[in-house]
Structures are given as structure tokens and as C-alpha cells.
């Protein structure tokens, strides 16, 4: 078992207006090596918050997140930094890119953290970007001016290049056309084969069919329905 979530809760407290917002209301599940879990649900159902809590962009209010015997909710900041660099990848739904860094360098960075030389890292990054159909002339350009789809692929490349053990994807294909989506799906399946555990939120049922072993259907901060892909998709 790679990941075990027990009764995860998240409530946002907005001090300025004295309001609270509960985004996660007791989520529990476990995931194994090489499993691909698709997460569905309306916006506001808690899908993004779930991924963010695992990645520690959000601090869970209660519950535990056990990753390979480590409780991430109790881990220190520097331990999380280490995990993010070597083990856990994340792609946000917001298509933000690091400004003034070339595409190749953005994607090469995680390999440099792993100890690759800058040259080797750049080579691997270029290779991956080409596979994701990023045009040659864009490799040394700044992604800030790219289209949504291009940005998304760049961010994805950055997350997957170091072959993380756990991959968290928030709407990774939302801005992609059919062709690019296909390539991305291929890549994700390959990683899955190699043992990466993937949690991804999707709206596209076709992609869910192709990728996910299981689906979580979320509503109001809980997993309302869970089961094998075809079962859930039939229900909807």
C-alpha cells in the first residue's frame, strides 16, 4: 500500500470575515502501487483540496495521510520538501508557469535536484517535451506566453520527468485537444506500468475510461461513491 488516507478533514477559516468553509468532510481510502484513481465531482466538491492536502499545499484540519508508513500530516516541512523533490509530483489546475525560465529548464529542474548534470537534465527534458509534442522552437522560449494547452503539457512534463512514486494531477487535460490528450494519456499509462500511483481529477469520461482502475465520485467534501471505473461510469 502506497497511500492510506484516514478520515481527512479540511476547514478553511477566513479570519477577516469570520467565516469557515469546510472543503473535506471525512475522506478515507487507500491506494496501491501502480493504481490509477480517477476523481470526479462538481466544482466545490473537494477534489482539488484533497490533492492539495496530500501535497501539503493545504494543511489538513484533522485525519491522517500515510504515505509509505510516514504520516504526512505530522511530517516536518523539510521532510515534505524532500518527498516533493524525489517522490511526489503535483500538477495544479491553474496554468501558472515560473516566469523567465525557459521551457527546457523548467522541466529539467527536478532532475537537477536528483543530481543529474545540467546538460543531461536538459537532454532528458527536451526528449520528454518533444514526446508531448511541444514544438522545437518553444523549447528555449519562456512558457509565460504559451497557450493553455502548451503550459499544461510543460507543467505535466515537469511533474513526471523524475518518475515520482505518487503523482497528483488536478485537471491535467482540461486545456488539451484530442491529439495532445492522447499523448498525455499514453505517458500516464506508461508511468502507471512502471509502478507510479496516480490520483487524477478529470471531467472527461473517455479519459477516465482509458486510465482509471477506480473512480471516486466526490460531493460536499466526501467520497460519495467509489468503485471500479465501468461501474461508476454506468451509474452516472
Amino acid at each position: 500500500m502506497v497511500l492510506e488516507i484516514k478520515d481527512l478533514r479540511k476547514t478553511f477559516t477566513m479570519h477577516a470575515i469570520g467565516k469557515q468553509l469546510t472543503a473535506l468532510n471525512g475522506v478515507s481510502f487507500s491506494a496501491n502501487e501502480g493504481e490509477f484513481i480517477g476523481i470526479m465531482g462538481k466544482s466545490g466538491s473537494g477534489k482539488s483540496t484533497l490533492l492539495k492536502c496530500i501535497y501539503r499545499t493545504c494543511l489538513p484540519t484533522a485525519g491522517s495521510i500515510i504515505y509509505h508508513n510516514i504520516d504526512l500530516t505530522k511530517a516536518k516541512d523539510n521532510e515534505i520538501i524532500a518527498l516533493r523533490r524525489k517522490e511526489i509530483g503535483y500538477v495544479s489546475q491553474f496554468l501558472r508557469v515560473i516566469p523567465r525560465v525557459t521551457t527546457v529548464d523548467v522541466v529539467a529542474e527536478p532532475l537537477i535536484w536528483k543530481g543529474y548534470t545540467r546538460e543531461k537534465a536538459r537532454d532528458e527534458a527536451s526528449y520528454l517535451l518533444r514526446k508531448l509534442e511541444i514544438k522545437e522552437e518553444l523549447l528555449n522560449a519562456y512558457p509565460t506566453t504559451f497557450s493553455g494547452g502548451e503550459k499544461q503539457r510543460v507543467n505535466l512534463a515537469r511533474a513526471i520527468i523524475s518518475r515520482p512514486s505518487l503523482l497528483l494531477l488536478d485537471e491535467p487535460t482540461s486545456a488539451l485537444d484530442a491529439e495532445s490528450s492522447k499523448k498525455v494519456v499514453e505517458m500516464m499509462l506508461k508511468l502507471k506500468q512502471e509502478g507510479t500511483t496516480i490520483l487524477g481529477t478529470f471531467h472527461n469520461t473517455e479519459i477516465l475510461k482509458k486510465t482509471s482502475d477506480r473512480i471516486f465520485f466526490m460531493k460536499n467534501g466526501c467520497i460519495e461513491k467509489t468503485g471500479k471505473t465501468h461501474e461508476i461510469l454506468e451509474m452516472i
Binding site: H68, N69, I70, N78, E79, I81, A82, L83, R85, K86, E87, I112, W113, K114, G115
Partner: peptide
Amino acid sequence: MCALIQDSAKKGENI
């Protein structure tokens, strides 16, 4: 902590 930390890059070594 299980066998996470490999060698190489300094950051993430938690030293």
C-alpha cells in the same frame, strides 16, 4: 523513515 532519501542533490537531504 523508510528508504526514501537517495544520494545526490543536497536539497532534500535534510541536513
